[in-house]
């Protein structure tokens, strides 16, 4: 589904990704772990199409199509979703209306009919309940005055509503207490699907106790230096990142 080949990316003239390779097939959950500054967020942002990232070399294909040529909205239309590390506040923009605009923009782009208002309302309520997100927050402005945990749950709610093909969760676990983490993991697990791929970008192994990845990759200095299964995450948890960084340097 997603193929990243020899990806080199610069941010403000500093090379952050240094020839990254990754293959993700439908139904798989990949965890990308790495120390601070290893390029985790850069990878998330490049995949979602954020401005300010200069691709020097390499390819990113989604179902054979060059993702890098597409605008952020076109990527969303193709099924890419990024749950942001720092969800943005949108003053004056109603959360419910925002989600409906988003769903319908994607449906329009796919030549599908707009979602019926009642059906939308039912879905959003049902999914908010699963994420234990207070219904009042649906009527508020997007993320304005939300707690850190509420913002993250609101991201997962959007993901549940948009049903993406490729979901990238950028440090969704950061700043969450254990209860919030469990709820979010539950929400993500409910979205696991043979047709859907999920990339979990995280610093800590903690999230992976609740969402079992099929693959774990370690990102160091902008490259994946080691890949494995869940056991690798546990090893990192015990030994930290330094041994891998040292091995990589050697």
């Amino acid at each position: 589904m997603l193929t990243i080949k020899d990806l080199i990316v610069k941010v403000e003239n500093k090379q952050i990704l240094n020839g990254l390779n990754l293959n993700v097939r439908p139904g798989e959950v990949h965890a990308i772990m790495g120390p601070n500054g290893s390029g985790k967020s850069t990878l998330s942002h490049v995949l979602a199409g954020r401005e300010g990232y200069e691709v020097i070399e390499g390819r990113v294909l989604l179902n054979g199509e060059n993702l890098l040529e597409l605008t952020p909205e076109q990527r969303a239309h193709k099924g890419v979703f990024l749950a942001m590390q720092y969800p943005v506040e949108l003053p004056g923009v109603n959360n419910m209306i925002f989600m409906r605009e988003s769903i319908n923009a994607i449906r329009r782009a796919r030549n599908e009919d707009a979602l019926d208002a009642i059906e939308f309302l039912q879905q959003v309520r049902e999914k908010a309940k699963l994420l234990q997100l207070d219904e009042k927050l649906l009527k508020r402005n997007v993320n304005v005055g939300f707690s850190g945990g509420e913002k993250k749950r609101n991201e997962i709610l959007q993901m549940a509503m948009l049903e993406p093909q490729l979901a990238i969760l950028d440090e969704t676990d950061s700043g969450l207490d254990i209860d919030a983490l469990r709820i979010i993991a539950q929400g993500v697990n409910s979205l696991r699907d043979p047709e859907r791929a999920i990339i979990l970008v995280t610093h800590y192994q903690r999230l992976l106790e609740y969402i079992q990845p099929d693959f774990v990759h370690v990102l160091v200095n902008g490259r994946i230096v080691r890949s494995g299964d869940k056991a690798l995450a546990l090893e990192l948890e015990q030994k930290g990142y330094n041994w891998i960084i040292e091995e990589d340097a050697a």
Binding site: A48, G49, R50, E51, T71, P72, E73, R75, A76, H77, F81, L82, M84, P87, V88, L90, F98, E101, S102, I103, A105, I106, A109, Q158, L162
Partner: peptide, 10 residues
């Protein structure tokens, strides 16, 4: 970017 990443045109 937030809005666009949710499929909403520029």
């Amino acid at each position: 970017f937030y809005l666009r990443s949710r499929g909403i045109a520029e």
